[in-house]
Amino acid sequence: MTTPDQSNSTRKRLIIGGAAAAVVAAGVIGVVSVNAQDPDPGSKTPVVADVANGNLQQSTHLTIAAATKAAQAALDAAVKENQHVTVAVVDRDGNTIVTLRGDGAGPQSYSSAQEKAFTAVSWNAPTSQLAKRLDGAPHLADIKGTLFLAGGAPVAAKGGAPIAGIGVAGAPSGDQDERFAQAGVAALGN
């Protein structure tokens, strides 16, 4: 014999189970109906942007080979001076292309090199110059992913537009870091 509490418990389970089944069924039907509306999305003609109307913009990016060459040149310059650094090269959008962590480089140098490279390319200026701007605009340092310490150098295309940034971190002074970053820029012929 079942008690009223057991009967209510069974009803609740049946109601909850039925509701859950209805939700799942509705989702399946929705997916099927969406797929039925467009059975072959690949058969559509692609939309072509009208280049004559100025809808497209080209940007220049370093190849991985060029970024690696620059990073290696910066690291080699540091090794010649017996410095243990990390070198990062980022593209125009601040995305890391390559990072080389030298033997004995400190753990903080990895992210610092990337942030210096990002800062240099973002403002198209060496980070030593940008650090001086903090006196007049201290809130610049609050921008996520930036580091206003010497050691970052921009890479510019012909015409001066920034295309990459090289950041070096780990030497005892930012001046040394920046000199090594400039060696990476020089390796690219800038």
Rank of each mutant, 00 (worst) to 15 (best):
Q83V: 02
Q58S: 14
A73T: 07
S112V: 06
A20R: 04
D5F: 05
T119L: 04
V79R: 13
A157F: 06
N124V: 07
A52C: 10
F180A: 09
D135M: 07
D76W: 08
T96E: 15
E115Q: 15
A186N: 07
S111N: 14
D175G: 12
A67H: 07
Q83G: 00
H84G: 12
V34Q: 15
N95L: 13
K80C: 01
A141G: 01
S112F: 13
Q57R: 11
T119S: 08
V155G: 01
I16N: 12
G145F: 03
N190K: 11
A141D: 07
P39E: 14
V51P: 04
A161N: 06
T96K: 13
A70R: 04
S111K: 11
S128D: 08
A49R: 09
V32Q: 11
A164V: 10
P39L: 13
R101V: 13
S122D: 11
A171E: 03
A120T: 02
G54F: 03
V121I: 00
T86R: 08
G170H: 05
K158Y: 11
G18S: 10
D103L: 00
D177R: 03
D76N: 14
S173C: 05
A125W: 00
G167C: 09
E178I: 03
A21R: 12
F180W: 10
G54I: 06
A156S: 14
D93P: 02
D177T: 05
A74T: 03
T60Y: 03
G160M: 04
V47H: 13
A105C: 05
T3C: 07
T127V: 08
G160V: 08
G18C: 04
V34L: 15
V85N: 07
S122N: 12
A117Y: 05
G42C: 06
N95W: 14
K132N: 00
F148V: 04
R133F: 00
I97G: 04
D50K: 10
E81Y: 02
A66Y: 03
S59Q: 15
A181Y: 04
T119M: 04
A120M: 03
G102P: 10
I15E: 13
D135I: 11
H139K: 11
G18N: 07
Q37D: 09
Q58N: 13
P4R: 08
Q129G: 00
I163H: 04
T68L: 01
I163W: 05
A171G: 04
A113K: 10
A171M: 05
A22H: 06
A78K: 05
V185M: 02
V32E: 09
G42Q: 13
A117P: 02
A137E: 12
D40I: 09
K158N: 14
G167Q: 10
R11N: 15
N53F: 08
V185A: 04
G189K: 12
P41E: 02
N95V: 15
Q6N: 14
G170A: 09
T86Q: 07
V24F: 06
I15F: 13
V31G: 12
A66P: 02
Q114L: 11
